[in-house]
Design a protein around this nucleic acid. Structure first.
Length: 232
DNA sequence: AACCAGGACGTGA
DNA sequence: TCACGTCATGGT
């Protein structure tokens, strides 16, 4: 059987739709989530519903790099107060004001630079969908951020691989501990229907599952039994 | 009170 | 390519 699909079924059946990517002013709540529960829209795949929401997701994907989401939320709210979840407004802010606004999200010195670079790039697109290669040329955008932007802001079928993905799949013995980003991405994409909704849910479910089972070693993953049984 | 979070970049082997 | 060090706030 297809382990990748089996794991998805298990996660979805246990946790349900996750409602990613969170949108600041979306009033819905997902009480089944671990941690922050606001802004999620489980079962509603119509996001982003506007260019403003699209840019908000892009900014959030940079701010959340190696950072807990509640911290990102604070940064987004202070930007919102400045009406600066908008590329032109971000570029119009002086560096100190921008850094002060995003301070709660950490790494504020480099992220301030990244946000301005991203703003310039976004404007240069002129509402066009960027390619993955183009995104990777933007300073501050690596593999995961590029895929997050494509999958959640532009609804492109690119699987998002994060640290949790590697941790879970290597712990389950489905990849080596030192598997590279592209290798993991290929494993997931090759074993799933190339559908945006599936990719969006799967990544979000992985994060939820990791928060529940991979916060402290030794990892005791309920999926381990599923994988052993279906291996034979 | 360490530890780590929805990483990326720069550097020197 | 590979292995590290660096960046920073806030929750547990």
């Amino acid at each position: 059987m297809n382990q990748v699909k089996n794991i998805y079924s298990y996660l979805f059946n246990n946790y349900g739709p996750q409602g990613w990517w969170p949108i600041l002013d979306y009033k819905g709540v997902n009480p089944t989530k671990t941690g922050s529960i606001h802004g999620y829209h489980p079962g509603d795949y119509s996001f982003p519903r506007s260019k403003d929401e699209q840019f908000e997701i892009i900014i959030g994907s940079v701010l959340t790099q190696n950072t807990a989401w509640p911290n990102v939320e604070k940064a987004l709210r202070s930007l919102k107060k400045l009406k600066a979840i908008n590329p032109k407004r971000i570029l119009a802010l002086n560096d100190e004001a921008l850094k002060e606004a995003i301070r709660p999200a950490g790494y504020f010195n480099q992220k301030a630079i990244y946000l301005k670079e991203m703003s310039k790039f976004y404007i240069s697109l002129n509402r066009r969908t960027p390619t993955r290669k183009e995104l990777l040329k933007v300073k501050g955008v690596g593999n995961e951020t590029a895929d997050s932007i494509l999958l959640y802001a532009y609804k492109q079928p690119e699987f998002v691989v994060d640290a949790y993905t590697k941790r879970i799949f290597s712990n389950l013995g489905l990849i080596s501990e030192k598997a590279r980003y592209e290798e993991i991405k290929k494993l997931l994409e090759d074993n799933l229907p190339k559908e945006v909704v599936i990719f969006q849910e799967y990544h979000a479910l992985i994060v939820e599952h990791a928060k529940r089972n991979y916060s402290k070693k030794p990892y005791d993953d309920p999926l381990y039994i599923l994988c052993c049984v279906t291996l034979s």
